[in-house]
Design a binder for these strands. Structure first.
Length: 496
RNA sequence: GGGCCGCUAGCUCAGUCGGCAGAGCAACGCCCUUUUAAGGCGUGGGUCGAAGGUUCGAACCCUUCGCGGCUCACCA
């Protein structure tokens, strides 16, 4: 999407052309600023006007011109680089006629190099008194208006580069996102997890209940699926002796787009041998506390009009208890398929298929009655086996599995379980999924024979977990939409 | 996919009952050597999302389409 050539662009191109005629290149290369705005502030913020006057040392900064306040023979410029902002003073008397002529051709949005000494203005602002200035890069397009900035969300997402230039909070959010991922990576590596990369293109979609994207390899003449989860590959690695592995990367699901769903999203998935789902709940508490402390600086994180408390331990309920205690569901409802179905229908729930068992119906009731009430971090444990085809059955009750999901602000943030490593049980579960697939459940899993083959070689008892990184970033950056934490969120195509 | 709302100058937005297309910022010209959304005087800038319809006359009413937001459904 490119707005058409207009008066603004013409004026700026003409200025660039005039400079070229005078032998100047409006797109120079190889400049070397000696410092950044942040270093200057760190060094001089505490110094007063008198002490700055004694300091004649020169500094040069490069950055984008964000504002020009001009007085004819002098002007103040606001310069922004990667680290922050600094005011620059350009005075005709100081820079000379030639340089001042160049300054007159400078526009808001251009990138420049400014060299000079520091001083304080009448109003006390730390300012670089330019001795020389250089146009580094001419900007042909104007920046959005300085007061209201850029607010149109479509333009913000489609032209994220403009959004990043003018909306400082946007930059902060993506810096925080990077820090969160760095903190998680360090956390995992410190615990002897090995970072791996597994295929993005799968011959059989697996590891989650979701509709995949399909693609095609021409030379192999073979349909492939963009992965919906790396799970089955990571567990193959555990069979291979990589006892602790993790992957932070994209999953793709061909489903709806919403305030918390993007077709491609980032997951941390990890597997730890000789651990149980119980161990992973503890690990998750440690990880979230660690990341919140490092990135936000506190365990209490403001989110929208609430405050999320990441202090361990998080609350824990079995799914059954959460339904009764939080959802105020009569326990009788949960004892038979007939009762559950009747109750679910009274809530307006439409079954995905007629063959849904008690477990699936209970899970749907949970989603309707409990999920949105889980504001503070809460683990829900012991999901029905029916909805958990890759999880280990509970030793005391085979109808439920040793699994948890972590909910924060009513959203599912993490999903972990003790892995099913009995190849015969796993084959039976795949079979049930394939039956559901034939009945029309597009999200059901396929039968992965090689995965069974892997399990038949013996997978040590292992627990695994997936954490939705985008949603975690939303919580830690107080972002209301997943689109605020993905640099280039999926949008409809532009028809011109 | 359903419902609701929106799309007007580069940006942010007004536009009354259907009657000449507006403001601020930005741009351009002039003045101005300590500003913080600098200030003053002046000038230019529009496919009113697109197409069709109603009407003497449409940014405004109707239809269809496109794009976006919110929301419901689905999902993590």
């Amino acid at each position: 999407m490119s707005t058409p050539e207009n008066e603004y662009i013409k004026v700026r191109k003409d200025k660039a052309e005039e400079l070229r005629k005078e032998g100047m290149n409006p797109f120079i290369n190889g400049i070397s600023p000696t410092t950044t705005t942040a270093v200057i502030h760190e060094k001089y913020d505490a110094e007063d006007a008198a002490s700055l006057e004694k300091d004649a040392s020169k500094h040069s900064i490069a950055g984008r011109v964000m504002a020009i306040r001009s007085f004819g023979k002098a002007a103040f410029l606001q310069i922004r680089d990667r680290a922050g902002n600094l005011q620059v003073f350009v005075q005709k008397q100081r820079v000379g006629d030639e340089q001042f002529k160049l300054f007159k051709k400078l526009d808001v949005g251009d990138i420049g190099l400014f060299e000079g000494e520091m001083f304080r203005t009448k109003t006390g602002e730390l300012t670089l008194n330019a001795a020389t200035l250089t146009l580094v890069t001419k900007a042909y397009r104007p920046l959005p208006e300085k007061w209201h900035g850029l607010t149109d969300v479509e333009t913000r997402y489609r032209q994220r580069y403009v959004d990043l230039i003018v909306n400082d909070d946007v930059k902060k959010t993506f810096v925080a996102r990077s820090q969160i991922i760095q903190a998680i990576r360090s956390f995992m590596v410190e615990r002897s997890f090995l970072e791996v990369e597994t295929p993005m293109m799968h011959p059989i979609p697996g590891g989650a209940a979701a509709k995949p994207f399909t693609t095609h390899h021409n030379k192999l003449d073979m349909d492939l699926y963009l992965r919906i989860a790396p799970e089955l590959y990571l567990k193959r690695l555990v069979v291979g002796g990589l006892e602790r592995v993790f992957e932070i990367n994209r999953n793709f699901r061909n489903e709806g787009i919403s305030i918390q769903h993007n077709p491609e999203f980032t997951m941390l998935e990890f597997y730890q041998s000789y651990a149980t789902f119980d161990d992973l709940m503890t690990l998750t508490e440690e990880m979230f506390s660690d990341v919140a402390k490092k990135v936000v600086g506190s365990l209490k994180v403001p989110y929208q009009n609430d405050e999320i408390d990441f202090s361990a331990p998080f609350k824990r309920y079995t799914m059954h208890d959460s339904l009764v205690e939080i959802g105020k569901v009569d326990p009788e409802v949960l004892t038979s398929r007939e009762n559950a179905l009747k109750y679910a229908k009274s809530l307006g729930d439409e079954l995905k298929s007629k063959d849904e068992g008690l477990g699936a119906i209970i899970t749907e009731i949970f989603e309707l009655k409990v999920e949105e009430k889980l504001i503070q971090p809460t683990f829900i444990t012991h999901y029905p086996t029916e909805v958990s085809p890759l999880s280990r059955r509970n030793d005391d009750n085979p109808e439920v599995v040793d699994r948890f999901e972590l909910f924060i602000y009513g959203r599912e943030i993490a999903n972990g379980f003790s892995e099913l490593n009995d190849p015969e049980d796993q084959a039976g579960r795949f079979k049930a999924q394939v039956d559901a697939l034939y009945r029309g459940d597009e999200e059901a899993m396929h039968f992965d024979e090689d995965y069974i083959n892997a399990l038949e070689h013996g997978m040590p008892p292992t627990a695994g977990e997936g954490i939705g990184i985008d949603r975690l970033v939303m919580l830690l950056t107080d972002s209301p939409s997943i689109r605020d934490v993905i640099l280039f969120p999926q949008l409809k195509k532009v028809n011109s």
